[in-house]
């Protein structure tokens, strides 16, 4: 593996760890706040949120609007 691809792999690993941290914290937050009814909304949003980030927003936007 050359240096550039090793760096990219490390970056991807770090992003995955960060996302896992985020989900764990979100779960803990809902448990403490007893707001499990937010879960379906949040799952939808996090999934679409990921797509929004990946697509930088604009191209994906109309798709979200039709769903909400």
């Amino acid at each position: 593996m050359d240096r550039a691809s090793a760096g990219a792999a490390a970056g991807n690993d770090e992003r995955a760890v960060l996302m896992m941290d985020f989900l764990v914290e979100l779960w803990r937050f809902m448990r403490v706040r007893k707001k499990f009814w937010l879960l379906p909304i949040l799952i939808m949003m996090v999934v679409f949120g990921g797509l929004v980030v990946l697509t930088e927003g604009s191209a994906f936007a109309p798709f979200i609007y039709t769903l909400f």
Partner: peptide
């Protein structure tokens, strides 16, 4: 909602 949520999700 349409303005706030993308900002939050991003």
């Amino acid at each position: 909602f349409r303005m706030a949520i993308p900002l939050w999700l991003k």
